[in-house]
Simulated scan of single mutants.
Amino acid sequence: MPLDNSQSRRRILKLTGAAALPAVLAGCGDGGSGGNGGDESGNESGNESGNESSGGGEALEPGEIELGGEVQAWQGVAPDQIADQENPTLTLQEGESYEITWENLDGEGHNIQILDDNDEVVDDYETEIMDQEGETQTLEIDEVTSEMSTYICEPHQGTMSGSIEVQ
């Protein structure tokens, strides 16, 4: 029997939507993450803070790394391997030197610290807190060591935290 009246069509749409809602909420819809916190391919990469990869695990070339600092996350600026990523994983070469330059994007108080697995600052690699929007700071890392595991903004470490992988 054909569905000519709008009441029947609305009822079918309502029932179809109600049946699909639990599947979407469970992460079973197309393009979802599968509900496992991973990426679209189902990989569970990154850590609790939602870090993204620095480009397939390839180490960044020694030199300058640029980030933007705002309360919701560190924003990758340069090099291209981390551009446009939130809290990008910094894959660094052991024994090499890097400069991490970051810009205050929101006028809130931020700094940067390099931590070890015990959440302690490694070799005094930290900056003072600055709160001027547009201001920049550079943290010079003379020599990357295997104890470096995380970079954070101390006042906002719940959202501004990224992994460091040493190769």
Score class of each variant (00 low, 15 high):
Gln81Gly: 07
Ser54Lys: 00
Asp39Gly: 13
Leu67Cys: 11
Glu58Ser: 14
Ala18Val: 05
Leu60Lys: 04
Ser45Cys: 11
Ile82Ser: 03
Asn51Met: 06
Gly37Arg: 05
Glu99Trp: 04
Glu86Asp: 12
Pro79Tyr: 00
Gly29Gln: 15
Thr89Glu: 15
Asn36Ser: 12
Asp39Cys: 07
Ala20Arg: 13
Gly56Lys: 06
Glu96Ile: 03
Ser33Gln: 10
Val24Asn: 04
Ser53Glu: 15
Glu48Tyr: 01
Leu90Gln: 06
Tyr98Ile: 06
Glu48Cys: 00
Val71Ala: 13
Gly31Thr: 09
Thr89Asn: 07
Gln72Lys: 10
Glu44Ala: 13
Ser33Met: 06
Gly38Asn: 05
Gly68Asp: 07
Asp80His: 09
Gly27Met: 06
Ser33Pro: 00
Cys28Lys: 15
Asn104Gly: 04
Pro62Asp: 11
Glu66Tyr: 10
Ile65Leu: 04
Ser49Gly: 09
Ser45Trp: 11
Leu90Thr: 03
Gln85Leu: 13
Gly95Pro: 08
Gly69Ile: 01
Leu67Met: 12
Asp106Trp: 09
Gly68His: 04
Gly29Trp: 05
Gly32Pro: 00
Ile100Asp: 01
Ala18Met: 14
Leu105Cys: 00
Gly68Arg: 05
Asp39Tyr: 07
Thr16Pro: 01
Leu67Pro: 01
Asn43Glu: 13
Glu86Phe: 09
Asn51Ala: 11
Gly35Asn: 12
Leu105Phe: 07
Val24Pro: 00
Asn87Ala: 02
Gly107Val: 10
Gly55Tyr: 07
Glu61Met: 05
Gly46Phe: 08
Gln75Gly: 00
Glu66Ala: 12
Ala83Met: 09
Ala73Val: 01
Tyr98Ala: 01
Glu40His: 08
Ala26Lys: 15
Val77Met: 11
Gly55Asn: 08
Asn104Lys: 06
Gly29Pro: 00
Leu92Ser: 02
Ile65Tyr: 03
Ala78Trp: 00
Leu90Gly: 02
Glu108His: 10
Glu86Thr: 12
Glu96Lys: 13
Asn47Met: 06
Pro22Asp: 14
Ala59Lys: 06
Glu52Met: 08
Leu60Ser: 03
Glu44Leu: 11
Ala73Leu: 02
Pro79Asp: 05
Thr91Asp: 13
Gly31His: 13
Gly34Lys: 11
Gly38Phe: 09
Gly38Cys: 07
Pro22Gly: 14
Gly29Asn: 15
Thr101Pro: 01
Pro88Tyr: 06
Ala73Cys: 11
Leu25Ala: 12
Gly69Gln: 08
Ala23Val: 10
Ala18Asn: 14
Glu61Tyr: 01
Val77Tyr: 00
Ala20Cys: 08
Glu61Gly: 04
Pro88His: 04
Leu67Asn: 03
Glu61Ala: 15
Asn47Cys: 09
Ala73Ile: 00
Gly55His: 03
Asn104Ile: 02
Pro22Ala: 14
Asp39Lys: 07
Gln85Asp: 08
Ser49Tyr: 15
Gly46Ser: 08
Thr101Cys: 02
Glu94His: 07
Ala83Asn: 12
Pro62Arg: 05
Pro22Tyr: 12
Ile82Pro: 02
Ser53Arg: 06
Pro88Asn: 04
Cys28Arg: 15
Gln93Glu: 15
Asn87Leu: 05
Glu94Lys: 14
Glu86His: 11
Ile82Trp: 09
Ser97Lys: 01
Gly46Thr: 11
Asn36Trp: 02
Gly32Leu: 09
Ala23Ile: 12
Asn87Pro: 06
Glu52His: 05
Gly35Lys: 10
Ser45Met: 11
Gly57Lys: 04
Ala73Phe: 12
Thr16Arg: 11
Glu48Gly: 13
Trp74Lys: 04
Pro79Glu: 04
Glu58His: 10
